[in-house]
Amino acid sequence: MSAPLLRVENVGKRFGGFIALEGINLDVANGERLGLIGPNGSGKSTLVNCLCGTLRNEIGRVSFEGRALDGLPAHQRTRLGMARSFQLPRPFTSLSVAENLRVPLLYTVKARSGITHAGADLDARCHDLLALVGLESKATKRPRDLTQVEMRKLELARAMASDPKLLIADEAMAGLSQSEVNDIVALLIRMNERGVTIVLIEHIMSAVMSFSQRLVVLVSGRKIADGKPDDVIRDAEVERAYLGQ
């Protein structure tokens, strides 16, 4: 078996006296579609923030492609190939939709390859990404003119613009209608088929079940289950702690 893309070893995080995460171990294999679920306050977002470098985990280590990430600031992790989308979309409001995508292209893809991309090449990549999420017609619009679901798509497209190996999608579908949810799940699967490993944090069970190849459950800062989705949701502890609340 090849080395995992992302390895989380014994990660812990506390805020004052509150233990947000404790002893988290997790491997994510290359090309995998992993679902991460857990009730509110179970530590999902804290874990994402620790993985992406927004928060520092005091305990344990995170490594990506065998390289330890400890202490590396968020932007460098993005450059290594870890991208994230935010739970509440955080577009750059003063930039157009296309310019929003240009930022990661300029600051990660260009910085990583060292090649000075010609303007036309950047435009082509922008267009490609907009086509992937279906926002071609909105390229020159400002984020405030987008609908809720379009905003989510922009958020995912911007994460994809950094050409990641791993995409961590933090509740990309909260508040969307069923057809919109299906839309986003299909989009995520399309991204995965392009070779991107995806970790999906989500509350909407139908989405998680149709998306995930593997399911991990967090409760109160601890991992209580990890396995095939159908097995996990039948797990007695999961049912008690989470689904059957």
Partner: peptide
């Protein structure tokens, strides 16, 4: 320039800027 884009992202949202690979500091 690229710097201008970077500055604008800092003004708009530093967290998102970092996540997009912008070395904000």
């Amino acid at each position: 320039s690229q710097l201008g884009y970077g500055f604008a992202t800092i003004r708009d949202d530093e967290l998102a800027a970092e996540a997009s690979g912008v070395p904000t500091l």
